Computed example of a mutant assay.
Amino acid sequence: MRIDVEDLHVAYGGRTVVSGAHLLAAEGEITGLVGPNGSGKSTLLRTVYRHLKPSAGRVLLSGTDLRELSPVQAARHIAALPQERGGDFELSVREVVAMGRTPYKRAFAGEDATDADIVARALADVGMDGHAGRRFTELSGGERQRVLLARAFAQQPDVLVLDEPTNHLDVRHQVELLALLRAQGRTTLVSLHDLNAAASVCDRLHVLHAGRVVASGAPREVLTPALMAEVFGVRAAIVDHPLTGDPLIAFDHRAVADAVKEAEVTV
């Protein structure tokens, strides 16, 4: 399934945070949202997974307006990993992941063998199968992140919406998580601060700046020196990664941000 965001406007607290956003997350692709802090990435994602209501525009799931779906219907199609991780669950790791099966259960229905297999597989996918009996509150930030991702996998959605999923993860687990997202083959809409990670894992990028989508396309097309200067206020060169051939952004850490906007870098 695909996600289409059409002329989306989102406002709260008397302030417009997203203004006229258009974007596509194509079926089976990983679509990234990148942009400076405060550019509207999290707000846009919250609207996609129905935590916020748009003031105008709409979000379509394979042509159907999400507002036409019931909460249960939406939860069977879209699973989210927000930045706000919720409270400290007084549950075991396995019980937290099993919460992902809720959209498929009748009220007060117990877990069946299919649910158990799905939960076990989700825990194994994120490398937490050896921690199923631990209390969620005992985990490190990175371990909690992986458990909540497993909960999203257990939901068996058509679309994953992930807001900064690599937060709190060490380098190895960041690499493993991004490889896992690629292997899933699900439609994925993800915000990432790490531009090199975004360039490596995403099929398509949308760049947000001051609540607007200012560039869209393949990472190599979008992440140009001019855009890095204009949107992020940094001087950068785009080269080929020596191991993967993906675009690699090399930042000039000596440049003063205010001085690079007029800079023209040729690689």
Rank of each mutant, 00 (worst) to 15 (best):
E6D: 13
G14M: 06
R15S: 12
T16A: 11
T16P: 03
V18N: 06
A21W: 03
A21L: 11
A26N: 03
E27W: 05
E27F: 09
E27N: 11
G35Y: 07
S39A: 15
G40K: 03
K41W: 07
L45H: 02
H51F: 15
H51E: 15
G57E: 12
V59N: 07
V59G: 06
L61D: 07
S62W: 07
G63S: 11
S70P: 08
V72H: 10
Q73G: 05
A75E: 08
R76L: 07
R76A: 08
H77M: 14
H77Y: 13
S92K: 11
S92D: 12
V93S: 02
M99F: 01
T102Q: 04
K105F: 05
A113L: 03
D129N: 11
E138T: 01
G141R: 08
Q145F: 02
L148R: 00
Q155R: 07
D158H: 13
L160P: 08
D163W: 02
D163K: 02
T166W: 03
N167Q: 13
L169T: 09
E176H: 05
E176L: 12
L189K: 03
L205F: 00
V207D: 10
L208V: 06
A210Q: 13
V213F: 03
A215Y: 10
V222S: 06
T224E: 14
G233I: 12
R235C: 09
D240M: 14
G245N: 14
P247Y: 05
A257K: 02
V260P: 01
A263M: 05
T266E: 13
